[in-house]
């Protein structure tokens, strides 16, 4: 139990250290919350599987600065996201809009699940027990000594 506890404490400490990485001063807690949310939802283009908040890439730092600057300028979340989408496309969003080309992205997994369901159902039907016909029933009766009339 002890090593597990130690690992959990260390892991928490890593989280705190990462949060402390943010060098910005916020005017109020609400702005900071909005900043953290935006940075977590925007994707870094250099290390593509990291958010702006996670990435140490130079570009991510620039974009964080930009988000911070726009927040201080009183821009809304939509304006900030729009600014980045105009320049980098939907790719910067971890939650792209549900429209046009992204339908497959959003609903593809459901489609796959439905396909898997159909296959599963068909396999289930194929494996349904087959009733013995008259000859087979007679053979079974002869072997087991029981009469077992076919339906």
């Amino acid at each position: 139990m002890k090593p597990l506890l130690r690992a959990m404490v260390l892991w928490l400490a890593v989280g705190v250290a990462q949060a402390a990485d943010t060098p910005f001063e916020f005017q109020d807690a609400e702005t900071e919350r909005r900043y953290q949310k935006l940075a977590a939802e925007l994707r870094c283009l250099v290390c593509q599987n990291q958010s702006l908040a996670d990435s140490h890439a130079d570009l991510a730092q620039d974009l964080r600065d930009e988000v911070y600057r726009m927040l201080n300028d009183g821009k809304t979340d939509e304006e900030i996201v729009g600014f980045l989408v105009e320049r980098y496309g939907d790719f910067v969003l971890y939650r792209p809009p549900v429209a046009g080309i992204t339908y497959l992205l959003w609903f593809g997994p459901l489609l796959l699940l439905a396909g898997a369901g159909v296959v599963w159902w068909r396999i289930g039907r194929a494996k349904a027990p087959v009733q013995p016909d008259a000859d087979e029933a007679a053979a079974i009766a002869a072997l087991t000594g029981h009469r077992n009339d076919p339906p």
Partner: peptide, 9 residues
């Protein structure tokens, strides 16, 4: 190429 991001510009 996963690094290719189509530009909206």
């Amino acid at each position: 190429d996963p690094r290719y991001v189509p530009s909206p510009l």
